[in-house]
C-alpha cells in the first residue's frame, strides 16, 4: 500500500502542476467533439420541438404561424394519443417483465454446468444481432394465416382447428408484438444475468447448505443479492430501449389492427410524417420527452444505488 499512490492522489499531484483553469480548458476541449454531436442530436431537437409545438407548421405551403397552446390541447384531447400512451406502457411493462423473468430462468439453467452449456450460451447471442426489421418481417411471414408455418403446425398438431389471423385481431396482434420483443431480447437479459451468476462465490452457499437452507432460501439470500447489480443493468437498459421501440412494431403490425398496437413512437411518426402535422407531433413529442426524462431519472437512480458504474 505504501508503494503506489491511489489514482486519485496521483491525479491530485499531477493536477497541481497546472492551474485548474488550464485543466478545465483542456477537459472541455477534449469533450467538445462529443458534446457537439450530442447537442445536435438531443438539445437542439428538443429546443426545435418546443418552438414548433406552439406553431402550426405547414411543410408544403404557406399558412405557418403561432397558435399558442392549440397543439397541446389537441394532443391531450385526442383519444388516439391516450390509447397510444396506454399501449406504450403496456408494451414496456409486459415485455420487460417477461424478458427479466424468462431471462433469469434461462440464466439459472445455463449456470448448471452441462457439457453443452457453453455452446448453448454462445448461440443465445444470435437474436440480439438480428436487425429488428428482419425479425419483424420473419414473424410476419411465419404468422401469415394462409402460408405461415405457425398456423400450419398448430393445426397439424391439433392445437387449433382453424387458422388464426394473428395480426388481424387486437389481442393476438399484441401477443405477436410482445413475442417478437421477448424473442429478440430475452437472451440478452439471460447473458447479462449469467455473467452475474458466474461471480456468485461458492463458500457462503456451502455454509448455508450445511446449516440446512433449502434451494429457495439459498437463491433469495445468497444468489439474488449478488445478482442485484446485473438485474438492475438489464432492467434499466431494457426499459429505456423498450420505450424507444419503433422499427419492429412498425414492420410487424404498423400499429394495427386499427390503432390497437400503435405505441406513442408510431403515433408521433404518423402525425408528423404521414399527416404532416408537425406542430401536433412536436407537442406530443415534448410531452413524451418530459415523461421519459422523469422515468430515466428514476432508472438512473436505480442504477446508481445498485451498481458502482455511476460513481465518480
Amino acid at each position: 500500500m505504501t508503494t503506489a499512490a491511489s489514482p486519485l492522489e496521483a491525479e491530485e499531484r499531477l493536477t497541481s502542476r497546472s492551474s485548474s483553469k488550464e485543466q478545465a480548458r483542456f477537459g472541455w476541449s477534449m469533450l467538445s467533439p462529443a458534446m457537439t454531436i450530442l447537442l445536435i442530436m438531443s438539445v437542439a431537437p428538443a429546443i426545435y420541438l418546443f418552438y414548433v409545438s406552439f406553431r402550426h407548421e405547414n411543410l408544403l405551403g404557406p399558412g405557418s404561424g403561432f397558435v399558442g397552446l392549440q397543439n397541446y390541447i389537441r394532443v391531450f384531447s385526442s383519444p388516439e394519443n391516450w390509447s397510444g400512451a396506454v399501449a406504450t406502457f403496456q408494451f414496456v411493462a409486459i415485455s420487460v417483465v417477461l424478458e427479466l423473468g424468462l431471462g433469469l430462468g434461462l440464466a439459472l439453467l445455463l449456470n448448471r454446468k452441462f457439457p453443452e452449456t457453453n455452446l448453448l450460451a454462445a448461440l443465445f447471442i444470435l437474436p440480439l444481432g438480428v436487425a429488428p426489421v428482419v425479425s419483424a418481417l420473419v414473424f410476419r411471414v411465419l404468422l401469415d394465416p394462409a402460408y405461415g408455418w405457425v398456423d400450419y403446425y398448430l393445426q397439424l398438431w391439433g392445437i387449433i382447428s382453424d387458422p388464426i389471423d394473428w395480426l388481424g385481431q387486437p389481442f393476438t396482434a399484441w401477443v405477436a408484438v410482445i413475442a417478437l420483443d421477448v424473442w429478440q431480447w430475452t437472451p440478452f437479459v439471460a447473458l447479462i444475468l449469467l455473467a452475474g451468476l458466474s461471480g456468485v462465490p461458492a463458500e457462503p452457499k456451502e455454509a448455508a447448505m450445511i446449516d440446512g437452507a433449502g434451494p429457495i432460501r439459498l437463491f433469495w439470500h445468497i444468489t439474488l443479492p449478488f445478482l442485484r447489480p446485473f438485474i438492475a443493468i438489464a432492467f434499466v437498459l431494457r426499459t429505456i430501449e423498450a420505450f424507444k421501440t419503433f422499427g419492429s412494431i412498425f414492420v410487424l403490425t404498423n400499429g394495427g389492427p386499427g390503432s390497437s398496437t400503435e405505441v406513442i413512437n408510431l403515433d408521433i411518426y404518423r402525425i408528423a410524417l404521414q399527416n404532416f402535422d408537425v406542430g401536433a407531433a412536436s407537442a406530443l413529442g415534448i410531452v413524451f420527452l418530459l415523461i421519459l426524462s422523469l422515468i430515466t431519472k428514476q432508472l438512473l437512480a436505480i442504477l446508481g444505488r445498485s451498481t458502482d458504474i455511476m460513481e465518480e
Partner: peptide, 17 residues
C-alpha cells in the same frame, strides 16, 4: 448517459424538417 433516453421517433422530426 441520460441522452440515451431520447427516442429516435421524436428526434427524427426536427432532423427531417
Amino acid at each position: 448517459l441520460s441522452t440515451i433516453m431520447f427516442p429516435p421517433a421524436v428526434s427524427v422530426i426536427p432532423v427531417f424538417v
